[in-house]
């Protein structure tokens, strides 16, 4: 890989631009394919290019099928995102764990006493009302949203935005009783049972977690399960 290609890949990552590096494993030539353009010396036919774009949208790196098996497509998508609502003690454990697992993490909390850089070194903090903050982040199918404030004013505001998005995971901290009360409030706001069924509550896998770090671990494990095995697997395991 020449230096220009490496620089272009690093730039794309910095700007959160989806692209793929396509290498001809026999010839050694390569190109970067973006949604709207191609850079590099490897020529691609229109049909090869559309195959590459398909691989990017499916986020599935690999060699193409015959007769294009010499082409290896490596997808560079922006990182998955985790939005945590509530700059609370559990969030202090969850944020760095999620960063290690490869997520870009943003913590939203309008309360200045909680959302401080000292409590969240290196994490993007948004001191905003949760619905405004979450809406500005435009949650998509590569985004997980977790609410941890325990305060209905804040959690419900975030959930009402999360449930209208196609984020792949929604989790909300609270006991079974708290969760039932939450579902009742959201039902009165007009959310359907199918929409409410997307919320993982009580949040996290059932592993007897007690401390903030253990609860964060249970939450990240559940996010991982939904991401890798899909919501169906979660239902079957429950």
């Amino acid at each position: 890989m020449n230096r220009d290609t490496l620089t272009a890949l690093l730039q794309a990552r910095k700007h959160g631009t989806a692209c793929a590096l396509v290498r001809d494993l026999k010839a050694g030539s390569q190109s970067i394919v973006f949604i709207d353009r191609k850079e590099g010396t490897l020529a691609l036919t229109p049909s090869q290019k559309s195959l590459v774009l398909e691989v990017i949208s499916e986020d599935r790196s690999g060699r193409l099928d015959a007769p294009n098996q010499d082409l290896f497509v490596q997808v560079f998508n922006p990182p998955m995102r985790l939005v945590v609502v509530g700059a609370v003690h559990i969030a202090q454990a969850l944020a760095p764990m999620a960063v290690l697992a490869g997520y870009g993490v943003t913590v939203i909390d309008p309360r200045g006493a909680f959302a401080t850089d000292q409590r969240f070194p290196g994490v993007t903090l948004l001191q905003e009302w949760p619905d405004d903050g979450l809406m500005a982040l435009k949650p998509d199918r590569r985004t997980a949203v977790v609410t941890l404030t325990h305060d209905p004013k804040l959690d419900d505001a975030a959930l009402s935005v999360a449930l209208k998005s196609n984020c792949f995971y929604v989790g909300s901290l609270g006991s079974k009783k708290t969760h039932q009360a939450r579902l009742g409030r959201l039902r009165r706001m007009g959310f359907s049972e199918a929409e409410l069924g997307r919320i993982h509550g009580p949040v996290g896998l059932t592993i007897g977690a007690l401390t903030p770090a253990e609860i964060a671990l249970a939450i990240l494990a559940q996010i991982t399960q939904v991401r890798r095995q899909g919501p169906a697997a979660l239902g079957a395991a429950a």
């Binding site: 230096r3 490496l6 620089t7 890949l9 690093l10 990552r13 959160g16 922006p78 990182p79 998955m80 995102r81 960063v99 490869g102 997520y103 870009g104 993490v105 943003t106 290196g122 994490v123 993007t124 948004l126 905003e128 405004d132 903050g133 500005a136 982040l137 435009k138």
Partner: peptide, 24 residues
Amino acid sequence: MSTPNPYPGEAREDILAEAARWLD
């Protein structure tokens, strides 16, 4: 409010960035 960076942080161990530093 300012528009937040939708893809914050160096989310993962950045192998390519480190390799670029070695090259440099």
